[in-house]
Design a binder for these strands. Structure first.
Lengths: 235, 235
DNA sequence: CTAAGTTAGTTGAAACTTTACACTAAGCGG
DNA sequence: CCGCTTAGTGTAAAGTTTCAACTAACTTAG
């Protein structure tokens, strides 16, 4: 029994595994995703989600592999990172049965410095129109990106996730503006305040204020050891 | 450039990939999960989530592989199937860097006939106490099962998912009882009715009624082309 | 044949939440 | 010091949820 197991195991053809990332940031233009232009076949010259293979002697686990890819492309070391899903089939890669473990990352634009290099000939932010980007994407990355966008948009309704798109210090007005841009509708100021207060996840920064030509606003930051908190109800 | 790519690709050690399932059903005892006892190393003799490798020349995609495992173990062909996540690390399997693509399946007990065989020396339902089973599980399957249970319990609050634990025809009272067992609290009858009505996902079966020694109840079934519908609010 | 028991399904008033919008506060620039 | 802008608070009306009682339809015991 062990013998037949082992011989099956030896001759067994393992699928190709990659870790791919949908890295989101907010720019003046709106929500954008980071794309990398492929330097090698298959799909050489096409845009794709940045990704790579698992380095079996370097990455401890899947999340470590995702962090490595993110750090290589953006220089960001402490993002919000969440697994979106796995996409695997015989057809998605001409080289054979393959699967893509997909993460989404949320970063603040001013924390990122884009890095070229690797198997990639260009790296750039691409604006999201509805549920896609304008460029055609390699592999099944258009479908994967669509799922990541849906996950992000959905979580905006009932979680504190959008805070990760802002820099470390922000005002409540800025946070509300992020929600409104992602949701595409305006929110009530007092209701927004109340929601944020009831799920204790941000704290005022002592003394500091942000001043424009008007009343200055309290600055807040994410509380220690909080990443995402869910609301009972919708925002 | 292509040349160096190819030689890296050739020498590249791919991780081990398995597809594992948390198959849930409701018994008289409560929520139970299907476990398989391993016949081969590693963890020979231990209980584990049923699973297997991807058959690269048989499975079109990941979901097909999950369906194959489910069919082999339970005989069920049309379950509710949902991807829970991927768990991958260098340490979880002594044979090397491995990853487990995990699905959860919801089935009605009377649709299933357990099948022995394969690499497995026993298959059995195990009751869930809180967020685990009493048996110690192979690999990191205890952590994976915990995530699947959490996903299931969470979705009970705001989706129609529990309907998949019932047979094809059921009464509203039976459906409410499933929710109550999974949530561990009782629900209001009229509120429950109202919720089910507002997300149009079940339909009364014409004429048929279920009679006990009391007023007979309307039988319902899942509407065609509906799998899960989400509520605006909590159940 | 009727009364008691049981589960199905409906109704409505009280308690609570949300929404919309107006109000006060604090700064800047003329 | 007045007008403008954005921050932050208060409140009344509208909408939802909860609780509990009511009616309905059947079986069984007497």
């Amino acid at each position: 029994m062990f013998r037949s197991m082992s011989s099956f195991e030896d001759s067994y053809q393992r699928p190709i595994v990659s870790v791919d990332l949908a890295i989101f940031a907010l720019t003046a233009a709106g929500l954008e995703v980071l794309l990398a232009r492929r330097g090698a076949a298959p799909f050489a010259g096409d845009w794709a989600l940045p990704g790579g293979w698992i380095h079996v002697d370097e990455d401890d686990d899947l999340e470590a592999a995702a962090r490595r890819v993110l750090r290589n492309k953006t220089g960001v070391a402490t993002p919000y990172l969440e697994q979106v899903g796995v996409y695997g089939s015989a057809a998605r890669d001409p080289r054979g049965w393959s699967l893509s473990v997909t993460y989404m990352a949320l970063i603040s634009l001013d924390a990122a410095t884009l890095q070229q290099g690797g198997n990639v000939i260009d790296v750039a932010w691409s604006p999201i129109n509805g549920e896609a980007v304008t460029e055609p994407l390699a592999f099944d990355h258009a479908a994967i990106l669509k799922a990541a966008i849906a996950r992000l948009r959905n979580k905006v309704e009932y979680s504190t996730l959008p805070v990760h798109l802002l820099p470390e210090a922000f005002t409540l007005g800025e946070l509300q503006a992020v929600y409104e841009r992602l949701l595409g509708r305006s929110l009530d100021k007092s209701a927004f305040r109340k929601r944020m207060a009831e799920v204790d996840f941000i704290e005022p920064i002592e003394g500091e204020m942000r001043r424009a030509s008007n009343r200055p606003a309290q600055l807040y930051r994410l509380k220690q050891a909080r990443t995402t908190v869910f609301f009972d109800r919708t925002i």
